[in-house]
């Protein structure tokens, strides 16, 4: 491999963010790479911000992606995708973002307002090379989206491509890690069929 490939997965606790990183790392191992997974979370179990750094290379790397060197940003939640873009992304970054918002406690109680989706995507476009918004609720329905969002978004990201990996390789890794297998593989394949514009 010419250079290493950096994937950042941003979301909130409970979305299966860390597992998503594990799937990509295991897929990379199947291809003979040495991946590193870094995780940043405060209290993920309590709905906080969770960011997973997956670094795919041929030697051991530090756990965190240096600023500006993200290749692929998988946003499981729009505002968290923006937060990750502000902190880590640069002109190399291709972003695939779920448009399904997870409101904060303060938004629910009305003390603050969740930022407009259009503004989030607009700023992200100024930071990243490209931004592809995807509506998982439209593709999967309200109930299913909550269960398998991460598998779906992995599929969507692979329509653009995660350089060192193939869709079949990720599907294989996903089959070994995600439970229940059936709905997750189905969501992954649904993600692969989405028309993601770059």
């Amino acid at each position: 491999m010419d250079r290493l490939y950096n994937v950042l997965i941003a979301g909130v606790g409970g979305q299966g963010n860390l597992l998503c990183g594990r799937v990509l790392a295991e897929a990379a191992i199947l291809k003979g790479y040495r991946p590193t997974i870094g995780e940043t979370f405060g209290a993920s179990r309590r709905g906080g911000t969770v960011v997973t750094h997956v670094r795919i290379g041929d030697h051991d790397l530090g756990p965190l992606i240096p600023r500006g060197t993200v290749d692929m940003l998988i946003g499981l939640e729009p505002m968290e995708a923006l937060r990750a873009a502000v902190d880590y992304c640069g002109e190399r970054a291709i972003a695939v973002v779920s448009t399904a918002e997870v409101q904060t406690m303060q938004c629910i109680t009305g003390t603050t307002k969740y930022p407009p989706l259009a503004d989030i995507l607009d700023v992200m476009s100024s930071i990243c090379a490209s931004v592809s918004p995807i509506d998982p609720v439209l593709a999967l329905g309200e109930t299913e989206y909550r269960r398998v969002l991460n598998s779906f978004m992995l599929g969507a990201a692979l329509t653009i491509g995660i350089a060192p990996l193939t869709a079949n390789g990720v599907r294989e890794s996903l089959t070994g890690l995600m439970q229940p297998v059936g709905p997750n593989v189905a969501a992954f394949d649904a993600g692969l069929k989405t028309s993601v514009r770059v």
């Binding site: 709905g47 906080g48 500006g68 923006l82 406690m105 938004c107 930022p115 100024s126 930071i127």
Partner: peptide, 24 residues
Amino acid sequence: EMSLHGGLDARARGAKLLISRPLT
């Protein structure tokens, strides 16, 4: 120079939009 497309301006605009997810 880390290549940060859009530079500081876009980042500052982004940071303004963000709201925190405090522990509860």
